[in-house]
Design a protein around this nucleic acid. Sequence first.
DNA 1: CATCAATATTGACATCCATGAATATCGACA
DNA 2: TGTCGATATTCATGGATGTCAATATTGATG
Lengths: 121, 121
Amino acid sequence: MLMNTLEVLECCSPLAREPLAEDQAVGLARAFKALGDPVRLRIVSLVAGHEGGEACVCDLTASFDLAQPTISHHLKVLKDVGLLTSERRGSWVYYRIVPDRLAELGALLAAPVQATAEVDR
Amino acid sequence: MLMNTLEVLECCSPLAREPLAEDQAVGLARAFKALGDPVRLRIVSLVAGHEGGEACVCDLTASFDLAQPTISHHLKVLKDVGLLTSERRGSWVYYRIVPDRLAELGALLAAPVQATAEVDR
DNA sequence: CATCAATATTGACATCCATGAATATCGACA
DNA sequence: TGTCGATATTCATGGATGTCAATATTGATG
């Protein structure tokens, strides 16, 4: 069987296309680490699913059996890595998702499989 | 303007569709936490991009300035959360991506924005 | 200004985690 | 069987992290 080695440039996800550089990996890992806690994942889910696309801290503290400073801490972590934004309106602070940031992470994980580099002719 | 509240069932990502249950969140968070380390992210990238879709431990240890047990540790973490599988062939152990598991996480993060629950008629 | 409600910050503590040295396991090969 | 190379496991350690109590901040309202 005759085999021919091809460079497959437009292959899969960026993950598989070329090895992740260390500095890119550091930034992305910070975001994934932020999602790597059950409470923070549920916070993201609650904010994303809340009507109007936003939720105030009071909505969130009511949804968990955790102290208010703990929720505030998790919100700060998610905000620091660019997954949430916050806006103060009156006494309340409203948080919303940053869709592009979440989509960036999602795209990285989609279609990760490498097509074989050897192509039959 | 006349507004009508609708249940939007097929809306966005599962994240926004309904609040993540705690036990689901625990399982997903474990996987995201596994990706929340720069070395492990690069390992996933290297394995995904390696020809044949697999890489042996020797390929990986050569790519990092880390001791071999450290790489083995990270591989175990990724394997434990279902992101990698391993197969021994001779003296070498080859690791490959579990595409479905990665896609599951990617899908969760894609299109997370909530369409407004109020629909104009 | 004084008070109250909502949220953030600080500090402390227990637990978890990344890393490497030392060692064990396991397969190949003489 | 004995040795060697590849990989995994164990153990120790310094640093990061989740949690809460106490306190600070900030805006609204009297």
